[in-house]
Amino acid sequence: MGGNAWRVLRPLLSRLGQAGLVALLVGCIGFALMHALPGDQAFRLAAERYGPDIVDARAAAAMRAELGLDRPLALQLLEWLGRVVRLDLGRSLVTGEPVIQELRVQLGYTALLAGMALPLSALIGLPLGIAAGLWRGRWPDHAVLSLAVLLRAVPAYALGLALMVLLSVRLRWLPPGGFEGWAELVLPSLTLALGLAAVSSRVARESVAAVAASPVLAFARWKGLSERDAVRRHGLRNAAIPVLAVLGLQLIGLVEGILIVETLFGWPGIGHALVHAIFARDVPLVQGTALIMGLGVVLLNAAVDLACLLIDPRRGRQAA
């Protein structure tokens, strides 16, 4: 049993190491990018803090002095790293609030959005993909392929707008913005889910098509199992393994989608916070947001790893 525990622990430990690396890289890259952007940081911060109408060189100078922005960059970065080691993300340069506190609320909203979009994308993409895989080469396959190509080709921003116009303005079924109830959650998560489903349906289709043509399913039929039993007991799990693995890769797409969808729908999540922090040159907030996003991706990947371990016995086991 000890071997089995190691089988689970090993990928988790490697993910943990990855998390540390992500933290370091994201922090440093975020810092470097923020300082590479054109525009004066103190002016941008002051504009964000006091509004662009009232900002002037005096406010910027005060800001620079208050936040120590004229200290050497290397020193500022080292300070940030030192704090991260102590699990302190610092304070937002705009609001002065601790970054962790700013992100706590936003993270919850993003988790809600992602938590809704991921199952929704599975609910849309997997059945379509499975249907396409089972009837490969026939009209459901072609229809699902066209739909997937269309959804992939349309940028999330345009897709969101189209859904907004159709479902909110024309049909009045759903509110186009806000974040007060389940109704407001539907449009952004649907936008996000459709983009993800476009990919997952293709993966599910390929996977199901491969399994449908595999000797495993053929043997299950030759054994005398009914089609239903053969697919249920031998088809689904084998088809799910590559789908799950790709799902892990898709999480990157989820991050990208979240940035766009949150901005469009005014969803107060972490992606929205990142976009704003970048505009404001709020370096600690950018670093903190990117860090949390990076860790989130690593965490979800670890969850995917675990799920793969559960359904795929070949993972981490020695062949005889």
Partner: peptide, 21 residues
């Protein structure tokens, strides 16, 4: 199938379900 006729597949290690004991 499985009642009157049974078929032993080529390369059975590829035909057995890799995820089932």
């Amino acid at each position: 199938w499985g009642r009157r006729i049974a078929l032993l597949p080529q390369e059975p290690w590829l035909a057995l379900d890799p995820t089932m004991r």
